[in-house]
Amino acid sequence: MVMAIVVKTFFLQAFYIPSESMEPTMLVDDKILVQKVSYWGGDVKRGDIVVFDDPGGWLPADESKHAGNVVQEALEKVGLFPTGGHLIKRVIGVGGDTVVCCTDGKLTVNGKALDEPYLLDETATKDNTFEVKVRKGYLWVMGDNRGNSSDSRFHQADPGGGQVSEKAVVGKAWVRVWPLGRAGFIKKPSTFDAVNGK
Rank of each mutant, 00 (worst) to 15 (best):
V2C: 06
M3N: 10
M3K: 12
F10G: 12
F11H: 09
Q13N: 12
F15C: 00
F15P: 02
Y16M: 00
I17R: 04
P18E: 04
S19R: 04
M22H: 05
E23A: 06
P24I: 08
D30V: 07
Q35V: 03
K36F: 01
V37T: 13
V37S: 12
S38H: 09
S38Y: 06
G41Q: 14
D48F: 04
I49Q: 12
I49G: 02
V50N: 08
V51E: 02
D53L: 10
D53A: 14
D54R: 01
G56H: 05
G57E: 03
W58F: 15
E63D: 08
E63F: 02
H66T: 02
H66D: 06
H66V: 00
G68F: 03
V70M: 13
E76A: 10
K77F: 13
G79A: 09
L80M: 14
F81Y: 15
G85R: 00
G85S: 00
H86W: 01
L87V: 01
I88H: 06
I88M: 13
R90L: 01
V91Q: 06
I92F: 13
I92H: 09
G93M: 07
G93E: 05
V94A: 02
G95I: 07
G96H: 08
D97K: 10
T98G: 07
V99Y: 05
V99R: 03
V100S: 13
C101D: 03
C101G: 05
C102G: 10
T103M: 12
G105M: 06
G105T: 03
K106D: 09
L107F: 10
N110I: 03
N110T: 01
L114P: 05
L114F: 05
D115P: 02
E116R: 04
P117N: 08
P117T: 09
L119Y: 06
L119F: 07
L120R: 14
L120K: 14
D121T: 01
D121S: 02
T125N: 11
T125L: 13
D127C: 01
D127K: 08
T129A: 11
T129H: 13
F130C: 07
E131F: 03
E131D: 12
V132I: 15
V134T: 06
K136A: 15
K136S: 15
G137L: 11
L139I: 10
W140I: 14
W140K: 14
M142E: 14
M142C: 08
M142K: 11
N145H: 15
R146C: 12
N148W: 13
S149A: 13
S150C: 05
D151R: 10
S152K: 11
R153E: 08
R153S: 13
R153W: 07
F154P: 05
A157I: 14
D158C: 05
D158R: 10
S165Q: 03
V169R: 01
V170A: 04
V170K: 13
V170G: 00
G171K: 04
A173M: 02
R176M: 00
V177E: 04
V177D: 04
P179C: 11
R182M: 12
G184T: 03
G184Q: 03
G184L: 03
F185T: 10
I186G: 07
P189H: 11
T191K: 09
F192E: 02
D193P: 09
D193C: 11
A194L: 06
V195F: 09
N196W: 04
